[in-house]
Amino acid sequence: MSSEDFPAAVPIPVLATQPVVLASGSQTRLSLLRGAGLEVVAHRPGVDEEEVKLSCKAGGLTVEETAEALAELKASRVAAKVPAAYVIGADQMLECEGRWFDKPEDRAGAAEQLRALSGRTHRLVTTAVLFHNNSRVWHQTDQAKLTMRTLSDDFIERYLDAAGDAVLTSVGGYQLEALGAQLFTRVAGDHFTILGLPLLPLLGFLRVRGVLPS
């Protein structure tokens, strides 16, 4: 098979006037930002998210306050290394009837989360924080509400078989843009918020700052 049998890679168009830094290892957030025309460099912030969440919950913080605290911590950690850059930190939390959910550790954990969310409405709370010159210059918190249909144990097993390890990469054990669409009867909220980033408000602020053309 020759190289002519493969389509040429299509370059991602860049509209930004300068690179931005994403303080995250999330491929979804990286793809969203690059797809929107930003030149992005990703750096993992090295934050123990579980420890921060436990501390925030023990201190009586809300889901929104905890998501913001995590996003700010991620951004500030990376911004200390590249203070001149615009650094984006983000976090997403899932809350259902007072319970906070994290990414499942294994298939059994994913099945347990799906059973807990089955037939109920839960919230996805997403926050982004932007640092520049070692200062927080912007933040946004949005939420979406998702109603999951009642799932049989048989369906959960079939879904987990089909989705594979992808269920371990997302809180709640689903990706709405993929097989996770099979789980829901109603979704209310911004598409980008559900994917983990309040993208449109972020792009608006970057235009104000001249990082994107207006």
Score class of each variant (00 low, 15 high):
residue 208 V to W: 02
residue 30 L to D: 07
residue 97 E to H: 10
residue 152 S to C: 06
residue 48 D to K: 11
residue 13 P to E: 13
residue 113 Q to M: 15
residue 124 L to A: 06
residue 47 V to S: 06
residue 77 R to W: 00
residue 186 R to L: 10
residue 24 S to D: 01
residue 65 E to T: 03
residue 109 G to M: 08
residue 171 V to P: 01
residue 28 T to Y: 11
residue 37 G to M: 07
residue 86 Y to F: 15
residue 195 L to Q: 15
residue 127 T to G: 03
residue 5 D to E: 13
residue 109 G to P: 07
residue 181 A to S: 09
residue 51 E to Y: 01
residue 17 T to S: 15
residue 56 C to H: 05
residue 39 E to T: 10
residue 147 T to V: 02
residue 142 D to N: 11
residue 88 I to R: 00
residue 29 R to F: 02
residue 44 R to T: 11
residue 184 F to G: 05
residue 28 T to V: 15
residue 111 A to Q: 14
residue 58 A to Y: 02
residue 37 G to Q: 06
residue 15 L to Q: 09
residue 65 E to P: 04
residue 159 Y to M: 05
residue 72 E to I: 01
residue 19 P to K: 10
residue 81 K to P: 02
residue 67 A to M: 05
residue 152 S to P: 02
residue 200 L to Q: 14
residue 144 A to D: 06
residue 93 M to R: 12
residue 5 D to W: 12
residue 169 T to L: 12
residue 101 F to D: 10
residue 15 L to V: 03
residue 174 Y to D: 01
residue 76 S to Y: 00
residue 135 S to N: 11
residue 10 V to M: 11
residue 12 I to S: 12
residue 199 L to I: 10
residue 98 G to K: 03
residue 12 I to K: 13
residue 74 K to R: 13
residue 198 P to Q: 13
residue 79 A to N: 12
residue 153 D to M: 02
residue 116 A to P: 04
residue 10 V to K: 14
residue 155 F to E: 06
residue 102 D to V: 05
residue 127 T to P: 00
residue 68 E to V: 04
residue 11 P to T: 08
residue 100 W to H: 13
residue 208 V to S: 09
residue 185 T to C: 09
residue 161 D to T: 12
residue 161 D to K: 11
residue 208 V to P: 02
residue 103 K to L: 15
residue 14 V to P: 04
residue 13 P to V: 06
residue 148 M to P: 00
residue 178 A to I: 00
residue 128 A to K: 01
residue 7 P to S: 15
residue 11 P to I: 08
residue 26 S to Q: 12
residue 63 V to P: 04
residue 165 D to R: 15
residue 194 I to S: 04
residue 181 A to H: 11
residue 108 A to Q: 14
residue 157 E to C: 01
residue 178 A to V: 00
residue 110 A to P: 00
residue 71 A to D: 07
residue 44 R to M: 10
residue 206 L to S: 06
residue 105 E to S: 15
residue 58 A to F: 01
residue 41 V to N: 06
